[in-house]
Design a protein around this nucleic acid. Sequence first.
DNA 1: GTTGGAGAGGCCCAATCATA
DNA 2: TATGATTGGGCCTCTCCAAC
Length: 235
Amino acid sequence: LEHWVSRDALDINGMGEKLVQQLVDRDVVHSVADIYDLTTDVLYALERMGRKLAEKLVSAIADSKTKPWSRVLYGLGIRHVGSVNAQLLSEKFPSVEQLAEAKTTDIESVYGIGAEIASSVYQWFRIPANQTLISRLKAAGLQLAVETLYTTSLQDPASVSLAGKTFVITGTLPTLKRDEAKELIQKAGGKVTDSVSKKTDYLVVGEEAGSKLEKAQQLGIPQLSEAQLLEMLED
DNA sequence: GTTGGAGAGGCCCAATCATA
DNA sequence: TATGATTGGGCCTCTCCAAC
């Protein structure tokens, strides 16, 4: 549940470890699908919960239904499937049905996915409780397929400006949040990773950049400000 | 077998909001 | 209004998988 509400997954603002623990202890929530049945009245009855926060939470839960298929896939918590692998899988399998029906050999054909991860994904979809969960999430209105417009751009990498480029973000950007910058880069065909390596094409640098800047300088990786990144995205 | 990089978890600090 | 609980955001480190 904590993984599901975390920022890289469904990003339900205001819901953290303590709140999740209370919901479980009070028998209100048993699975991530139960989160979508929560109301302000139910939340208001919890400890340290005011009307304002309860309303904010209900709004954040509703917002999470607009998160793309790749984030939902990451949120499912399948072993070895983090945000990057979830993105790769969502590109190859644009809907949950396609991924659920895929054989391990199909899953393994995705660059970056090996036998171990393919087996983990395949096994996850064979568990009846997980199949029920998918049905409930679908009924709740979550995004379990890539939107048509997004699919089109992904299917034609040459049509997007940052196709094939790998970015790393460090520090705090002036106007964009990290996940916003990440989303913009991905929509333009680029890839965002967490660690700097020889394969990194650009380091996007914000205020109070950390050790990633130092490593990028050692490797001679070009650095971009937020403004320069936005210029690239406009090209 | 080696290397690169993703996943996972922890730490720290700032911000937010309920409570007293 | 001050205080404390909780969450958000960013970074670091270690482990382990995939690719070469």
